[in-house]
Design a binder for these strands. Sequence first.
DNA 1: ATTTTTGCAAACCTTTTGCATGGAA
DNA 2: TTCCATGCAAAAGGTTTGCAAAAAT
Lengths: 141, 141
Amino acid sequence: MVDTKPWTAALDRAGYSITEPRRAVAEMVAERDSHFTAPELVLEAKRRRLGVGRATVFRALEVFEELGLVERLDLPSGEHAYVVCEPAHHHHVVCQRCGRGTDVEDCGIEDVARQIEAQTGYLVDSHRVELFGLCPECRAS
Amino acid sequence: MVDTKPWTAALDRAGYSITEPRRAVAEMVAERDSHFTAPELVLEAKRRRLGVGRATVFRALEVFEELGLVERLDLPSGEHAYVVCEPAHHHHVVCQRCGRGTDVEDCGIEDVARQIEAQTGYLVDSHRVELFGLCPECRAS
DNA sequence: ATTTTTGCAAACCTTTTGCATGGAA
DNA sequence: TTCCATGCAAAAGGTTTGCAAAAAT
């Protein structure tokens, strides 16, 4: 469970209003412990009668992503999903069984990028790494 | 420009019929030198009056991907794109200016994955790495 | 009072599917 | 001739947008 206080603080710091709908989206997101999609949140908002509309969910996620509170990732299926993340970290491992994700600290990717630059002549300035596998728990069972 | 003969050969080998529409899609794809999306091909087919329908383009790309002739990748924008690729290689660097892509040979990612396993306890069994930057030509200008 | 944000509904895009027809093996 | 592949049109999702009303600063 993630505390949503940092979320409202981040909104405030960035000059965004702290509104009830945004708080509601933050809470739905914080309660999740694995990746989720925008339409899933829309569904949940409707089910729980939070009075939060589709557009608002999309717009809130957009803001949260900009603030580095969530990261958008692409599942192997091609679906667009989001995961909660600590600001500053930029990669995730996602469990294929339970969907839970974990942040990955710097792990040598920079070296890989440099090697690729040497190999291809490209100047690499951004990369996206997504890893999929089994989390410790699912691995055990 | 990519030769399409290997494509029909691959279709044949895998037990798929070699049809005019599939050949047409293969050709459109082969003529491209940077990434492309399915709707772009649909558009082109319509413009060139190839008589190839939307569904067929999608279905052909699905087959080509299965055969390893193209790879689906997700651009930073979230768009689903495809690139032509040599079978067996699995990563790409994509130029953000001109969109051209290049295959990347093994480059130490396995080491990274192993390091992440140690760090997180996950068993990593697949990964997706996409790099973005400037190709040598765009870099020069 | 002014500026943001929201909800709704409609528009837009991408992708998938059902099904009768046509083409490949 | 038997089966696979196609085209079309319709359906199904996902995402964005316009705009008047409501809330935030």
